[in-house]
């Protein structure tokens, strides 16, 4: 098993994400520069948090047009696993791999704290390690984490159980308290909370391990 972590100019959680995958899954991680046009042969593509291109346009918008994204989209269309965290989630919505969009927090302020997040659908490759209704303590750190989607789209997400995680104390105004969203085939996950910052007690929580650990059971 093997993973790739993409680095865009302005990514700043790429190392943390690679460390989490190496620590929890013990998989080799290829660090892939955004200017590449092909992915190495990997099972998981992980898109990290940060401020790609400074988020000077809509968050994730410029990165979603980077050369590597065509390969990421091909990987996803072929049924490969893709995990986007924070800015990575924004990139995935901008790239059309996930529905909805992420806009400025309702408070209009950046928010960084641990939040309580409930596992909504444990029947996926990213959540199988959890029990239904498990409540996780995960850090958020974002300015544009307010998930929005139209009524039809929301009905589809809820009906198809594509909501992976929901906030118990919504920090950003997200529609229906949505913290993480799955693609229709459940192989692409985007989430605003940072599981890679919650993989050991020294960091204040180990609850994020399950997001990576679930893949182990799924893929091994």
């Amino acid at each position: 098993m093997r993973a790739a972590v993409i680095t865009f100019p302005g990514s700043n959680c790429d190392r943390d994400l690679a460390v989490a995958i190496e620590t929890v899954l013990d998989w080799p991680v290829d660090r892939v520069w955004h200017g590449e046009t092909a992915l190495p042969g990997v099972d998981l593509v992980a898109i990290p948090g940060g401020f790609s291109y400074g988020d000077y346009l809509r968050s994730g918008a410029i990165a979603s047009r980077s050369p590597i994204m065509a390969a990421v989209i091909r990987h996803a269309r072929a049924g490969g696993y893709v995990l986007g965290i924070c800015n990575g989630f924004q990139v995935l919505t901008e790239a059309g791999l996930l529905p909805g969009a992420l806009i400025r927090n309702a408070s209009l302020k950046f928010v960084c704290r641990h939040v309580a997040v409930r596992v909504e659908n444990p029947a996926t490759a990213f959540t199988a390690a959890f029990a239904p209704g498990d409540v996780l303590s995960l850090p958020v750190a974002h300015h544009d984490g307010n998930y929005v989607i139209d009524a039809d789209g929301l009905a589809r997400l809820e009906g198809e159980r594509q909501v992976a995680f929901r906030y118990l104390d919504n920090p950003n105004g997200s529609t229906a308290d949505i913290a993480g969203v799955l693609s229709a085939d459940r192989r692409v996950l985007g989430m605003m909370p940072h599981p890679e910052r919650a993989i050991e007690p020294a960091l204040g929580s180990s609850d994020g391990r399950g997001v990576f650990g679930s893949l182990l059971a799924e893929l091994s």
């Binding site: 960084c112 850090p139 750190a141 993989i199």
Partner: peptide, 16 residues
């Protein structure tokens, strides 16, 4: 104030 700062990026902040 400090919740407007990302105080956990780099995943090495062990006393917040």
């Amino acid at each position: 104030i400090f919740e407007q700062y990302d105080h956990m990026v780099m995943a090495d902040t062990v006393l917040l």
